[in-house]
Design a protein around this nucleic acid. Structure first.
Length: 202
DNA sequence: CGACCGATCCTC
DNA sequence: AGGATCGGTCGT
């Protein structure tokens, strides 16, 4: 039914993996049911030299230690004291690097997503998962899942269909503090997809 | 040990 | 444009 991505998929160049994650399916299995979204927007963060990365200068902390571990595990962190972001540890082991999943297009479990997001049943589906913290809320992803292996069965990423699409790229969102790294084009998205979180120049 | 602030979202 | 909300991180 699903064709789960292998460990080897994640053990490649972080930029390449971030691009190739577009169009893949994020799958979450809960007791309430299965939730699936098609990944339409990602960002790459490469710890050793990227000033926007939580692991800049290879600094290992209580928050970011998962980035230094096995590839294909989930790095989940809290932002603004109330929201979560979901990343995949990628790249050469054991260099800290991740692909941040910024937006997905709902595929299955839309009713569950609406309940988790706390929105009324008649709201448009476009606002459900178009942002890193929105999709975490929709998928029930919290820091309890930090470090979980995406090669397992509770949450994983699968091959999608092979329909072609155009890849857009831009600066990353919300990292104005990152000096010379705030302008690198490490945000990737599917062109003309209405579930991409926001338009950015360049 | 205290102060600062964010890989965001929502409402005004 | 501004508030919510809190733990990690860093400076003292």
């Amino acid at each position: 039914m699903f064709n789960k991505l292998s460990r080897e998929f994640y053990e490649r160049d972080p930029i390449t993996v971030s691009i190739e994650l577009l169009g893949k399916l994020l799958v979450r299995r809960t007791k309430e049911g299965e939730i699936v979204g098609r990944i339409v927007e990602t960002e790459a963060y490469i710890g050793p030299y990227d000033k926007a990365s939580h692991a800049y200068r290879n600094k290992k902390t209580k928050r970011n230690f998962v980035q230094f571990g096995e590839r294909g595990h989930a790095y989940i962190f809290r932002v603004y004291g109330m929201h979560h972001c979901f990343c995949v540890v990628v790249g050469q082991k054991y260099i800290p690097a991740v692909a941040l999943i910024r937006s997905v297009e709902p595929v299955k479990g839309i009713e569950l997503m609406k309940i988790s997001r706390g929105v009324k049943n008649d709201v448009p589906v476009t606002g459900l998962t178009n942002g890193p913290s929105k999709l975490c809320q929709a998928f029930g992803i919290t820091e309890e899942l930090n470090g979980i292996d995406l090669c397992g069965d509770d949450i994983f990423i699968s091959e999608g269909d092979s329909k072609p699409f155009e890849v857009g790229r831009s600066r990353r969102i919300g990292i104005d503090y990152a000096e010379e790294y705030k302008d690198v084009l490490w945000r990737f998205y599917e062109e003309n997809n209405e579930f991409v979180s926001k338009k950015v120049k360049e």
